[in-house]
Write a protein that binds this DNA or RNA. Structure first.
Lengths: 168, 168
DNA sequence: GGCCGGTAGTACAAGCTTCAACTATTGCCG
DNA sequence: CGGCAATAGTTGAAGCTTGTACTACCGGCC
């Protein structure tokens, strides 16, 4: 139910007209944008936006590898989802699984050379799309505002996001 | 990376550090936010965010009904997706399908009383969530900026979004 | 050492979305 | 009228995500 007390007289007020418009623009814009970026990557390079994001995170590590849990945290995806996605990527030859040394529960995904080559090819597609359909449409100040707002959203929602048991 | 050697000499430049941070905050924040709003609606009222949005659009019509294609356009979802979602909602008793008069191809979804009652109950949950996890975290100016940016995104990506053949 | 709660990752099933046909109807245009 | 492209919506399968349960392992504590 609602957070905190069970049947608390919940405080809520409708969004005003301006907030309503902004909220709907955000939802629609996000739907269109993510859809488009995903579609472009699939058509050009046959990978999803999610797979692309994973390749990016891996490429940023000195050894091009990350533990499953860290990938999940970096993207705010469930562990389960990462398991499936990495399985598909392994199938496609983009990553390999290896055992973590020192913790026999751990699994580490390493980017293959093929995975890296694909990332190098796909990055321009992705970056051009992000610019064309988002960044270049906003003034610097407005885009900074977007960053500020969603930084806050992350902070507020981050903790305990995959924890199944939500004991408050 | 080799920039000029791609097939089309596509102009692209990496995002700078600030843009990169803002983009990642947006993606993560959006993931967390939509996930949370969806989860809250499901747990409290057993409907998805998508279903909720459809109920809202229907409730705004004088006769509480809309043609399938208009629902799809309003949410920027594919026609197919709307067909499936409305089918589930009909199953649950939230809407009914009726034939459009004057165009025998057309199908109109009408909200049932049960659907309306559910919307009335669910709206506070949803609005409180949107405020708590987004609106109340941003200054008025920053939230306005979000609205401006995504208005542009919509305008830029709107046309031809469900059209399979993108003949440019 | 043995118990026990917590962490890491996977497996399987159910649910939702996409994609590519496919049917039915409409409207235009000769 | 007859043909033909365009529109409306559905279908079914394949793909992706979620939820829950499960195994395995870690680490502290008695």
């Amino acid at each position: 139910m609602a957070s905190g007390s069970s049947r608390r007289t919940q405080e809520w007020v409708w969004l005003d007209a301006g907030q309503q418009r902004a909220w709907r623009a955000y939802i629609m814009g996000t739907t269109l944008l993510l859809d488009r970026l995903d579609r472009d990557l699939r058509q050009a390079w046959d990978i999803s936006l999610t797979e692309y994001e994973i390749l990016v995170r891996l490429s940023e590590q000195p050894d091009r590898s990350l533990r499953m849990a860290l990938i999940a945290d970096a993207l705010c995806h469930s562990r389960s989802r990462i398991t499936h996605t990495i399985a598909r990527m392994e199938e496609a030859g983009l990553v390999e699984r290896t055992a973590a040394q020192g913790d026999r529960r751990g699994v580490i995904a390493v980017m293959t050379d093929e995975g890296h080559a694909l990332l190098v090819k796909a990055a321009p597609t992705h970056v051009a799309g992000v610019r064309e359909h988002l960044v270049d449409l906003a003034s610097r100040g407005d885009f900074d505002a977007v960053g500020r707002v969603f930084d806050r959203v992350c902070d507020q929602l981050m903790q305990g996001h995959d924890e199944a048991t939500d004991i408050r």
